[in-house]
């Protein structure tokens, strides 16, 4: 099952800075919500055990994350892939940064969900994903602004 989300966030920080943080696995490792055992593997990838909660049910997935610096300092892609508790998940997020001293981050996320989790249905998954994504991006925005 595929779901797509997109949006944009304003970040009070210069674009170069935002780009370098967003593509830095060390920075990503600190801003991942509900995660444990986070391990930076190299300059573009990391691993983590992430907790995903849907209503009262929570599952833990072992996720591999990989950053692709497609067109610095504007475009980057983050691919997160994992499995756990009878479900599979692959999320491809594309970031497109614009602006100079202030950054606008346009983003899109395409998720492929398989197994038990997919049974919940795309409309609900999308609702939950929208909530989670809003949480993640507000976390990233705060972390970037704090380290600028």
């Amino acid at each position: 099952m595929n779901i797509h989300l997109d949006g944009s966030n304003a970040i009070h920080s210069p674009r170069e800075k935002v780009y370098s943080l967003l593509t830095d696995p060390n920075f990503i490792s600190k801003s991942l919500p509900d995660s444990e055992d986070v391990r930076v593997i190299d300059g573009s990838s990391l691993e983590a055990r992430m907790k995903l909660r849907i209503a009262v049910v929570s599952t833990t997935m072992r996720m591999k994350l990989r950053v692709e610096r497609t067109a610095p300092p504007s475009k980057a892609t983050l691919v997160a892939e994992g499995a756990g508790s009878g479900s599979t998940l692959k999320i491809t997020s594309v970031f497109d940064l614009s602006g100079d001293s202030q950054t606008t981050m346009a983003w899109s996320a395409d998720a492929e969900v398989g197994g038990v989790m997919a049974g919940i249905g795309s409309s609900l998954l999308k609702g939950f994903a929208a909530k989670k994504v809003a949480e993640i991006f507000s976390g990233i925005t705060k972390a970037v602004e704090a380290s600028s």
Binding site: A55, S123, G127
Partner: peptide, 14 residues
């Protein structure tokens, strides 16, 4: 209806 989708599901399961 879209706004209620998630909370209805969560409360239902609870």
């Amino acid at each position: 209806a879209s706004e209620l989708l998630v909370s209805e599901f969560e409360k239902y399961v609870e």
